[in-house]
Simulated scan of single mutants.
Amino acid sequence: MNSFSRRLQDFMSKKNLKQADLVRATGVSRQAVNAWFKQDKRPDQDKLILIARLLEISVDELLGREDKPEVSTSESKQEVDYWKNKYIQLLEEKNQLLEEKNKLLQKQSEEQAKKIEHQKV
């Protein structure tokens, strides 16, 4: 079994797909699909694209040219911490603005109350 066949089988296994699914997705015969698995044959470029879409991977991944980049745990934690701190900062700014708004509304309310009291006199 060649490396393409092995990768194809691995990706299909992860998606719980069968050779019949490849036949339907690509429009080729069972014999052609079987050749991709048992012989040293690869699909044409247009079929590779269809297979990659079915497997939700890139053609490069299918051909073994690249792996999906893995984000390290420390990078992920740093990014989460950054966005958490940014969120906290925005909440604090929001609370500050709400306090200022409440002070202004209180002041307006007091001024209106004084005007009303002044008009009664």
Rank of each mutant, 00 (worst) to 15 (best):
M1R: 13
N2G: 06
S3F: 04
F4E: 13
S5V: 00
R6A: 10
R6H: 05
R6F: 06
Q9S: 11
M12S: 03
N16Q: 11
N16F: 11
L17Y: 07
A20W: 08
A20E: 09
L22G: 01
V23F: 04
V23E: 10
A25N: 06
A25T: 03
T26V: 05
G27F: 02
G27V: 01
V28E: 03
N34W: 13
K38L: 14
P43I: 01
D44H: 11
Q45S: 15
K47W: 03
K47Q: 09
L55S: 00
E56W: 01
I57T: 03
I57W: 11
S58A: 09
V59Q: 03
D60Y: 07
E61W: 08
L62Q: 06
L63V: 08
G64A: 13
E66L: 09
P69W: 05
P69L: 03
P69K: 13
E70L: 10
V71A: 01
S72P: 02
S72V: 04
S72N: 02
S74R: 10
S76L: 12
S76W: 12
S76P: 11
K77N: 12
K77L: 14
E79A: 13
V80F: 08
W83S: 07
W83R: 00
W83F: 15
N85F: 12
N85K: 04
Y87M: 13
I88G: 02
L90H: 13
L91K: 13
K94D: 14
K94H: 15
N95G: 02
Q96H: 02
Q96K: 11
L98P: 07
K101A: 10
K101H: 11
K103H: 04
K103T: 14
K103Y: 09
K107T: 14
S109N: 10
E111D: 15
A113C: 01
A113M: 09
K114H: 08
K115Y: 07
K115E: 09
I116M: 04
I116S: 11
E117P: 07
E117D: 08
H118E: 12
K120H: 00
K120M: 03
